[in-house]
Design a protein around this nucleic acid. Structure first.
Lengths: 188, 188
DNA sequence: CGTCGAATTGATGTCATTCAACTACAGTGG
DNA sequence: CCACTGTAGTTGAATGACATCAATTCGACG
C-alpha cells in the first residue's frame, strides 16, 4: 500500500494539474498514545495512513463493551467503512503514531482520479482489505476461540507483540478470560 | 451496481477501442438450481453478476460443515475475494439463475480501465461490499444469535423468504436448531 | 515501594451445540 | 391417487464452550 505522500511525489513528477489541492489535502499528524481520532456518530470521516505506530478501530456496544474491528500498524490504511456518512467506529492510537490524513471526500475526488494512480493501485488496497475481511468472517462463523487465536498469531505475529492480550480477545470476539484459558489448554 | 452488459452498452456508445475484447469477455449463463460454479481450491476465479435468481458462496470446514459466506440475489456481484488465486469459496446456485460472468483477469484488465467507468463506479461496488462486511463482522463479534437474526431480517427481508432457514443459520454462524429455538423464544 | 491495569485462575451460569426423536411436507415412482 | 423417501423444521435432554463475577498474582512504571 502506497502512502499519500508517495502518491504526491509521483503526481509532482507528472505535473498533475491539481497538485496544490492535492498537497493541501494531506495532513501529517503526530498522535500521542490514547488519542481519539474519531467517534461513533461523527459525521466527518477520514482515511488514516499509518507511517509509524499503531491505530485501531472499534465499536462500543449497548453494554459499554469495546469490540475491536481492526488494528492498523505501519503501512496500513484505516477508515470507517460505513456508507452513510456517520461513523460506526471509534479510531484511536494504541501507540504514539505518525499518520497521513485525508478526508474521504478529498480521497475520492482528488486521489482516486489521479492518472498516476493506476487501476491496480486503485483496486489493491480495497482488495487487500476485502480479502482480510473475508478471512475474518470465515473464522468468525466457522472456528472456535483457539482456532481464531492461532490463525491470528500466524497472520499478525507482530501485532501480538505490541498490543495487550485483552485487545486480541476483543478482536477475536471472546473475553480476555476465555483467551487466557484456551491458551493454557493447548499445553495440557 | 451496474451489470457488465450495461457497462458494455456505454462502451459501445463511446466507441471504446477494445470493444470486441470487452464483449467477448462477458458470458451470459443460465444456471440450474444446485449447479456448482466454482470450488474451494480452484484456480480460475470469476465474477458473477446476478441478473435473476440467487447464488451463494460458502466454505466447507474440516468436519464437512457448510458455512455460508454470502447470498447474491438479483443485482449483486459475487466472487471469491481471496488474494492468491486459489479460491477459498464454493459458489453455487440456490435457484435457477441468470448471470453475467467475467474472469477476474478480464475484469481488472478490461473493465476497470474503461474511461466510461468513472471513479465513483469503480469504488462503489467495492465500498458497498466493504460496508456490508464491516457490519457483518461487528455483528459476529458483538451480537447474540437472536440479535444477528433480527439484524439479518431487517437487512435482507427478501432473502429470508427465498432460502431455507438452515442456510440463514449457516450465514449467521449458528446451527439450524439454535435458530429455530431463538425464534420461538421471542414470543414467550 | 506502592499503585494500577493486565493476566490468570476458579466457581458458577448461560447460551449454543450435539444428538436424537418426531412432524410436516414436497417430490418420486408405483 | 397413494405409498415411499428424503429434506426442513421443531423440540427435548445432555454436553460443551464461552461468559460472568470475584479473587489473586504479575508486571510496568512513577
Amino acid at each position: 500500500m502506497r502512502s499519500f505522500t508517495e502518491i504526491l511525489t509521483e503526481a509532482t513528477k507528472n505535473n498533475s494539474p491539481k497538485l496544490a489541492e492535492l498537497t493541501a489535502s494531506v495532513q501529517i499528524l503526530s498522535i500521542k498514545k490514547g488519542t481519539l481520532l474519531q467517534k461513533q456518530g461523527d459525521i466527518n470521516s477520514n482515511l488514516y495512513f499509518v507511517k509509524k505506530g499503531m491505530l485501531r478501530s472499534y465499536i462500543i456496544d449497548e453494554k459499554g463493551k469495546e469490540h475491536i474491528f481492526m488494528f492498523a500498524p505501519e503501512g496500513w490504511l484505516i477508515a470507517d467503512g460505513s456508507l452513510d456518512n456517520t461513523n460506526e467506529l471509534f479510531i484511536d492510537a494504541l501507540e504514539n503514531t505518525e499518520v497521513e490524513v485525508v478526508s474521504q471526500k478529498d480521497f475520492y475526488e482528488l486521489f482516486l482520479p489521479l492518472a498516476s494512480v493506476n487501476d491496480t493501485d486503485r483496486a489493491e488496497g480495497m482488495l487487500r482489505r476485502m480479502s482480510v475481511m473475508q478471512k475474518r468472517i470465515i473464522m468468525l462463523i466457522s472456528a472456535s476461540a483457539i482456532e481464531r487465536y492461532e490463525h491470528f498469531m500466524k497472520t499478525y505475529p507482530d501485532v501480538i507483540q505490541r498490543v495487550p492480550q485483552k485487545m486480541i480477545a476483543s478482536y477475536l470476539g471472546i473475553t480476555p478470560e476465555a483467551l487466557s484459558k484456551v491458551k493454557g489448554m493447548r499445553f495440557k
